[in-house]
């Protein structure tokens, strides 16, 4: 049974400790960057990550919108789990502390933090929390193919054009080096959900689908040729990883969802 304390601990780990795959990715980039500005940025980022862990403070002031991915076996109801998460969110906001980020869209009043929760049934209980900056959320996009402006058709080349366009337009606005999750096909909410979920993958994992794996590496290579760089001030590390997934589509539709994660893509899991 998951408790409020478990979720609070998950928040603290997520907000203050960057996953080792991303941290190592940033360290590798700092070693290989040729631009002095880019190296300086990466070294400051690495120092920031160390301070966060040592002092148990949030890596970034931006809490983002906390997103929970919950797999559960029905021993606890979704309603109970939701209540536990919401209470833990309030406590975490006060204690860690996290910046209150939930703004009433009409009145402008700030009402603490409000998590988004996705449930899925499973034999084993697992809970993953994702936190990333609003800047990286703002540059995320959904394309509909064909796209005449981009000259993008309903094929692999067309998909790649969408992703390059998203990165070009993003420049340094979403805190690069980015982790980019992409999903193709589906209905509109499916590509939004599935592309964001790709940000949970270990940045060094290998896509089981060899065709998608090839596209991931071609995209990564192309994106880093743009030399937008860490913090957007030039350099060869614009993205650390590209993660691509596919789902089925309607005959009339072909969506490409592009979800950006900032370098401070924070994720932590319970039950692994």
């Amino acid at each position: 049974m998951i408790t409020e304390k478990d979720v609070l601990d998950l928040y603290r780990k997520c907000a203050t400790e960057l996953s080792s795959d991303i941290k190592e990715g940033l360290k590798d980039a700092a070693r290989t960057e040729e631009s002095e500005n880019a190296r300086d940025v990466l070294e400051s980022i690495i120092e920031n990550i160390e301070i966060a862990k040592t002092e148990s403070k949030p890596i970034c002031q931006d809490t983002g919108i906390p997103v929970f991915y919950v797999k559960h076996d029905k021993t606890q109801s979704e309603e109970d789990i939701r209540k536990i998460i919401e209470r833990a969110t309030d406590t975490a906001t006060k204690e860690i502390p996290l910046r209150p980020n939930a703004v009433d869209s009409v009145s402008g009043k700030v009402i603490g933090n409000k998590p988004v929760i996705h449930f899925e049934e499973s034999a084993k209980f697992e809970m993953t929390l994702l936190m990333k900056g609003g800047g990286s959320e703002n540059i995320s996009k959904i394309y509909s193919l064909p796209d005449t402006m981009l000259g993008a058709d309903r094929d692999i080349e067309g998909i790649k054009k969408c992703v390059f366009d998203a990165v070009f337009n993003a420049q340094g606005k979403g805190c690069p080096p980015y982790i980019i999750g992409i999903a193709i096909g589906g209905s509109i909410e499916e590509v939004a959900h599935l592309s964001k979920k790709q940000l949970l993958r270990d940045i060094n994992d290998h896509n089981k689908d060899s065709e998608l794996r090839k596209v991931e590496s071609e995209l990564l290579e192309g994106i880093n040729k743009m030399e937008i760089g860490p913090s957007g001030i030039g350099g060869k590390t614009t993205a650390l990883a590209i993660k691509l997934a596919k789902s089925h589509r309607h005959p009339a539709s072909f969506f490409v969802g592009v979800s950006f994660g900032c370098w401070a893509t924070r994720r932590a899991s319970y039950g692994h």
């Binding site: 940025v41 400051s44 980022i45 120092e47 920031n48 301070i51 966060a52 002092e55 403070k57 949030p58 890596i59 970034c60 002031q61 931006d62 900056g133 800047g135 340094g172 979403g174 805190c175 860490p230 913090s231 001030i233 900032c262 370098w263 401070a264």
Partner: peptide, 12 residues
């Protein structure tokens, strides 16, 4: 320009 996300470098 300051570095996005490097919140603790600045707050110290």
């Amino acid at each position: 320009s300051a570095i996005g996300g490097a919140a603790l470098i600045y707050s110290k």
